[in-house]
Design a protein around this nucleic acid. Structure first.
Lengths: 276, 276
DNA sequence: TTGCTCCTCACGTCACGTGAGGTGGC
DNA sequence: TTGCTCCTCACGTCACGTGAGGTGGC
């Protein structure tokens, strides 16, 4: 053990505040090499300075304390680098998201008016290959991607034909609270019955019949609340909304083009059928 | 007043959770048009949907609720756009900072070893034009820029000559806690006495004498804790550190070049003079 | 009438910052 | 001995989320 210094000196060396250092001790992120039993004084080894600096860099990047601890505890360089890369990817995704939020805000403020048309449609029962689960809003995005990945893989493995655009049903709990049932599907031919591995989350089922008011959203999913708002306003003024999951159909989506401005998403809001 | 809907419908229209809407009501960010006196039920006008969407966009960009409220309350478009631009600039600065934190982290992990040399120096009294104030760590950056702006302006107005690099003194409270005295200065010729407007924060003074252990930091200020750490370690092992503000001198800084990798900052750590 | 929506507390979260009040070390 | 450093609570911050327990509306 090398030279030890007080918390104040260590603070000056690392530019971490004393309060921060005490907190890091409390959560066992950075533990002083020695604690005086009588006074409770913390003493740090100057060899801990580089560790403290690494911690500061990760916290500057908003990496949660728990993850920083994992990175520091990583048994080998490979594991450590993997954890770091994961976080850097997350940062990059966040930068992308911020960028598109800025764009989206500018669009909203410049108020590009798109004429919106609503269609009433009766959805028949259709056979689908589906995955349904309870998810939280945070994880919805990654769940969505993973679920469609699995669905498409199953289609390929079964030599099955997809007969329409992908879609999803989302329980209102997902909006009311932060968690609810979601189901994504690919429509399939009724005569074909793909072998679904039992025990997995894949299922072959029929989509329930429903009456929907439908509006098509153009552009990235970031902005989908704009169309939801317009459709909701329409329904309260011109139709009779009822309980039930909202229905989305991805006419053009990330599987078709990476240019998000080209995407088209049909949104179906359940209504009471007034025009038979 | 147009059509009103319940909080649940409004939630579905805007993709804001019911809890979030209740919170926005509580903090008077988005107030329902009507509240039932008996039941406490909140009713929203569908004309409030666009406002809610704007709020969501700003919150996605981490604009604090208080500022969102200001933007919405802005009396005219000019004021509003100004507030938005200010925030977008802050976002951009933050993106820059994140970017440089990533770079800095990579450098740290790749461990580019710079040989560090320490020099002991006696600083004489020198006359300076200075600004000293108590500042918090958050505002130190902007305070620093503003203070040097004012100093340089005063120099220009007085036809005064600057006889050395700019510098600053920083109380240890700035590191120990989050607030402390900071003083930035430009060295001037002793025979010249610039007219300092009274009542302002400018002052002509002599820098106190001091004994310092000095190390030069190369690169952006993001990384300055590396050199602080190295210097602190040196002082504990090879010298006798004493209380007193740390001294920084900006040999090459943002006034000289925007290429931060070229910057040179002398850091002076107060020591007890052992070698007279 | 049932079951769903809505309500109000009260408390938790995350990473610290802000005092208050008190002790220890040079 | 003074004055500075350090200590431990307890509470505050920000923008909500998580229940608990209860009422209202169709």
């Amino acid at each position: 053990m090398g030279d030890v210094v007080t918390i104040g000196d260590f603070s000056r060396m690392t530019h971490l505040s004393v309060k921060t250092l005490r907190y890091y001790h409390q959560v066992a992120l950075l533990v002083p090499v020695e604690i005086d039993a009588d006074s409770g004084y913390r003493y740090y080894d100057i060899a801990q300075v580089p560790t403290a600096q690494v911690i500061r860099r990760f916290r500057d990047l908003d990496m949660p304390v728990d993850e920083v601890r994992e990175v520091l505890a990583a048994p080998d360089v490979a594991t450590r680098n993997q954890l770091i890369s994961l976080h850097l990817e997350r940062i990059e995704r966040q930068l992308d998201q911020t960028q598109s939020a800025v764009t989206s805000l500018r669009n909203l403020l410049e108020g590009s008016e798109v004429p919106l048309t609503v269609e009433h449609r009766s959805m028949n029962q259709i056979p689908v290959l589906a995955i349904g689960e309870s998810v939280s809003r945070d994880e919805l995005g990654s769940w969505w991607s993973a679920a469609f990945g699995e669905l498409r893989q199953a289609i390929r493995n079964n030599d099955c034909v997809v007969v329409g655009p992908p879609g999803g049903l989302y329980e209102t709990d997902l909006f009311l609270h932060e968690r609810g049932d979601a189901l994504v599907y690919l429509p399939i031919q009724s005569e074909v019955n793909p072998a679904v591995p039992s025990g997995g989350r894949l299922q072959v089922m029929n989509l329930p019949e429903s009456e929907l008011a439908i509006m098509t959203h153009v552009g990235p999913h970031e902005d989908i609340d704009l169309t939801y708002g317009a459709l909701g306003s329409y329904v309260t003024t011109h139709a009779l909304g009822i309980e039930g999951p909202v229905h989305e159909r991805y006419l053009i989506c990330e599987f078709d083009t990476s240019d998000a401005s080209q995407w088209r998403t049909e949104i179906g809001w359940p209504i009471f059928q007034t025009v038979p």
